[in-house]
C-alpha cells in the first residue's frame, strides 16, 4: 500500500517535470527570439537586450532549463511584463475564483445527478428512465460555452433574474452567490448528465450483487437496501471520475469566465494572450496542469485505498 502511494506520487512528480520541460522547449523552440516575442511590437533593441540578460537567455539551454526548474521549485514563475508583479502572486490571486466556480458546479451536479441516476436505475427501462437517458446524453454533449451563452441570454439579459457579469462584491456573500449561479450551472449541467449515467450503471451492477440479495432476504425495507447498502457503494466511481474530470472542469471554467466576465484563471490567461503577457500565460498553464495532476493523483490514491486490486497494476 505504502509502496503504491510512493510510486503513484513519484509518477505525478515525473509527469509535472516532463510537462515543465516540454513547456520550456515550447518557449525556446518556437521560431523567433523569446525576448522579442515576449516584448512584442513594443520592444526596442535595448529592451530586448535587457530582457535577454535578465532572463539569462544568453546562457546555454541546459543551464537555462536548470534555472527554470529551480525557479519553479522556489515558487517563482517570473515577472508580469506589464505590471512587473510576480506571476505567482497574480495567478494565485485569480485561482480561488476558478476553484470556487469548479467546486460549486461539481457539488450542484452531484446533488442533482446522483439522485437522478439512482431513480433511473430503480425504474430501469421505464419511460422515465429512457427520457432521463436521452436528456443526460444531450446534457453531456452540449458544449459548456453554448450553455453559458444561453443562460446569459435567457436568465441574465432577457429575464434579468441573475447578474450578468463579474463575481459580486467582496464581503457580500449573497451577492457572490447570485453571481455564481449561472456560471456554475453552465459548467455543471454536463456533469449532471454524466454523473446520472455513471451512477445508474454502477447502481445496476451493485443491485445485482449478493450482499444486496442477502439484505433483501433479511426483510429490510427497499429504501434501507437502496440507500444504506447499494448507493454507498454505487457512488464510489464518481470520486474517480471527478478527479480525472478536473481537466474538463478547468477547460469549461475558461469559457464560462469569459462569457460571464468573471475573474479567474481563464479570464486571466485570455487577457494575457491578448496583451502578449507570456510569463502570465505560461504560469497559468503550469498551475492548471499541476492542479490537474494533483487531482488525478488523489483520485487514483483514493481509488487504490478503496480497491486493493488496482494497487497490483502499477
Amino acid at each position: 500500500m505504502l509502496l503504491y502511494f510512493v510510486k503513484r506520487i513519484f509518477l505525478g512528480i515525473l509527469i509535472i517535470s516532463v510537462a515543465v520541460t516540454l513547456m520550456f522547449c515550447m518557449i525556446h523552440l518556437v521560431p523567433g527570439d523569446p525576448a522579442r516575442i515576449m516584448l512584442g511590437p513594443r520592444g526596442t533593441t535595448e529592451m530586448i537586450a535587457d530582457i535577454t540578460m535578465r532572463m539569462g537567455l544568453d546562457q546555454p539551454l541546459v543551464i537555462q532549463l536548470m534555472k527554470f526548474f529551480g525557479n519553479i521549485l522556489q515558487g517563482d514563475l517570473g515577472m508580469d511584463v506589464i505590471s512587473s508583479r510576480p506571476v505567482t502572486a497574480i495567478v494565485f490571486g485569480q485561482l480561488p475564483y476558478t476553484l470556487w466556480l469548479i467546486f460549486s458546479a461539481i457539488f450542484g451536479a452531484m446533488l442533482i445527478g446522483i439522485p437522478l441516476g439512482c431513480y433511473s436505475a430503480l425504474h430501469r427501462n421505464t419511460l422515465a428512465d429512457r427520457v432521463t437517458g436521452v436528456i443526460s446524453v444531450a446534457c453531456i454533449t452540449a458544449p459548456s460555452f453554448v450553455v453559458a451563452l444561453y443562460s446569459l441570454l435567457i436568465f441574465a439579459v432577457t429575464l434579468k433574474w441573475f447578474p450578468a457579469i463579474g463575481a459580486g462584491d467582496k464581503g457580500d456573500l449573497f451577492d457572490q452567490a447570485t453571481h455564481l449561479v449561472l456560471p456554475a450551472f453552465a459548467i455543471g449541467i454536463s456533469w449532471v448528465g454524466y454523473l446520472s449515467r455513471l451512477v445508474r450503471a454502477s447502481m445496476l451492477e451493485v443491485l445485482g450483487e449478493n450482499h444486496i440479495r442477502t439484505a433483501r432476504a433479511y426483510g429490510l425495507t427497499e429504501s434501507t437496501v437502496v440507500y444504506r447498502y447499494a448507493l454507498k457503494i454505487a457512488i464510489l466511481p464518481t470520486v474517480t471520475v471527478i478527479g480525472v474530470g478536473m481537466g474538463f472542469l478547468i477547460s469549461a471554467a475558461v469559457f464560462t469566465e469569459i462569457v460571464f466576465a468573471r475573474p479567474g484563471l481563464g479570464k486571466l490567461i485570455i487577457e494575457s494572450i491578448t496583451s502578449r503577457n507570456y510569463p502570465v500565460v505560461m504560469g497559468s498553464v503550469l498551475v492548471s496542469t499541476v492542479l490537474f495532476v494533483i487531482s488525478t493523483t488523489i483520485s487514483d490514491l483514493v481509488n487504490a485505498w478503496l480497491d486493493p486490486r488496482i494497487r497490483a497494476n502499477l
Partner: peptide, 23 residues
C-alpha cells in the same frame, strides 16, 4: 507512456491557449 500521461495531464484548452500564445 510517460509522454502520453503528460499530454493527458494538460487541460486541452490550456495546451491550445499556450500554443496560440506562442505561434
Amino acid at each position: 507512456m510517460l509522454l502520453f500521461d503528460t499530454i493527458r495531464s494538460v487541460p486541452t484548452i490550456m495546451l491550445a491557449l499556450a500554443a496560440v500564445a506562442m505561434v
